[in-house]
């Protein structure tokens, strides 16, 4: 489903360049749950942004469902974001001026669903995430864990094929972390959503089926969790 071929990312600095990612070659299959780990500054977030089509690689080739996507028009890229990709952020990034309900509804609006379709989809998600009572609250009225639940509900609202999560539990205490990770696992196993997360926590990484380790921009050989493969 996702395959990177010799992807590098660098920024010009003075006369030379600073490499953030070097020569990454990587395949992710549909239904995988992948954790990207590495020390600060190792290029985890950049890799996630490239995978999520938020940044373009400087070199190399990126195939998303066998289509090269390293250079895409805004329209095509937006189209992928609407239908195939969901994001979850460490800082939740909910829109403060919108209620829980409206935050979850936002991607559906841009996807162009009719009002009744949106209503039923949001209701379904609220129900599933046990947030029906909170639908008219604003993000600032919620705890961090609840905000992240809304963030995930928003990410899956448009029924994406893959969710990219950037340290989704980085701001949460351990109980909440656990809850969120369980949720990801369910999404992965029950709904078949591919999940790629960046995390610092080995515990959280264990929820996935594969760990990618980055160091100074190099991808180290991946390790498979358990022995299914």
């Amino acid at each position: 489903m996702i395959s990177l071929r010799n992807v590098s990312k660098y920024y010009p600095a003075g006369f030379g360049k600073i490499y953030v990612l070097r020569n990454i070659t990587l395949d992710i299959n549909e239904g995988e749950f992948i954790s990207i780990m590495g020390p600060s500054g190792s290029g985890k977030s950049t890799l996630l942004h490239i995978l999520g089509l938020l940044e373009e690689p400087s070199e190399g080739e990126y195939l998303f469902f066998d289509q090269p996507v390293q250079k895409l028009s805004e329209k095509r890229r937006t189209d992928l974001h609407r239908n195939h990709i969901g994001f979850v952020f460490q800082a939740y990034h909910l829109i403060d001026e919108l209620t829980v309900y409206e935050n979850i509804e936002t991607p559906l609006l841009y996807k162009g669903l009719s009002s009744s379709e949106r209503k039923s989809r949001v209701a379904e998600l609220l129900d599933r995430f046990n947030m029906v009572a909170k639908k008219d609250l604003f993000p600032t009225q919620l705890s961090g864990g609840q905000q992240q639940l809304v963030g995930i509900a928003r990410a899956v609202a448009a029924k994406p094929k893959v969710i990219f999560a950037d340290e989704p539990t980085g701001n949460l205490h351990s109980d909440q972390s656990k809850e969120i990770m369980e949720l990801f696992k369910r999404l992965n196993q029950e709904d078949g959503v591919t999940i790629v997360q960046v995390t610092h926590s080995e515990t959280n990484a264990e929820y996935g089926n594969r760990i990618l380790r980055l160091k100074d921009g190099w991808l180290e050989p991946s390790e498979v969790i358990g022995s299914q493969l």
Partner: peptide, 16 residues
């Protein structure tokens, strides 16, 4: 800025 980012990620075109 953050709002703009979120909307774009949620599938908003620049024109929207």
């Amino acid at each position: 800025a953050r709002e703009v980012g979120i909307r774009k990620v949620a599938g908003a075109l620049r024109i929207q």
